[in-house]
Design a binder for these strands. Structure first.
Lengths: 116, 116
DNA sequence: CGCATCCATCGACGAGCGTCGATGTCTGAT
DNA sequence: ATCAGACATCGACGCTCGTCGATGGATGCG
């Protein structure tokens, strides 16, 4: 997984999406549809250089280290986060394409006219 | 519910969102993070006038009428869909603000500079 | 070597979700 | 009044998900 190719650039408005397209994007939405994971993404995206160490992330939540690790795994599997090991520490970084894909999905329709 | 006021216009990038903000937006994301519901939204948004009759929607899915009705209720409760009864039929319409809120959430950061 | 730290994985539990068949509630026509 | 159709609601089922404690590598230090 962690495939960079999302069901990119097909606004949900304008043209009805196919069941296949839906099944392709939904995992990405499911990954983001959790308060802890959404905060994780936000924390990492807003951090220096768009990346953060797990050691720092753990302190920002009340949940167990195991739970945070689980959520990071979910986000990584969905292609939202990149994972890089540096010595003892692990750093996660946000994939902008993932967030952009969602933003594009729900962006206002292209106003029609460019579509054949 | 069906409150029009979403946790609007606060990109997840740039500044880390608060737990309260997360809890506020997550229901909206959860509502959209289902293949059937996503297709429902897309079908309605892409229909004539941005609205569609339940009778037509039922035919577009393999699921039971009860299931479709349930999903429509979820979307309505999340503030994604508006509901209007016309005689025997019920019409649902998409609330553009709901989709825009999500699009804004995951839009690229304001490029920094406007932030204090 | 032994040991401490960081992180992932495992197994288990309870809660929530998607789905269904059956039933209820309206509306409009006969 | 009776009936048929359009949606909503109810109760139940299985499955997934979020969470935890405990355990298992991996890395670096003394």
């Amino acid at each position: 997984m962690t495939d960079p190719g999302f069901a990119c650039c097909t606004p949900v408005t304008g043209t009805p999406i196919s069941p296949e397209q839906a099944d392709q994007v939904v995992p990405l939405l499911k990954a983001l549809a959790d308060p802890v994971r959404l905060r994780l993404v936000s924390l990492i995206a807003a951090a220096e250089g768009g990346e953060a160490c797990v050691c720092d992330l753990n302190d920002a939540f009340d949940q167990t280290q195991a739970t945070i690790s689980h959520h990071l795994k979910v986000l990584h599997s969905a292609g939202v986060l990149d994972r890089e090991k540096r010595g003892v520490w692990v750093w996660y970084a946000v994939r902008p394409e993932a967030l952009t894909a969602v933003a594009t999905l729900f962006a206002p329709a292209p106003l029609a006219g460019a579509r054949a």
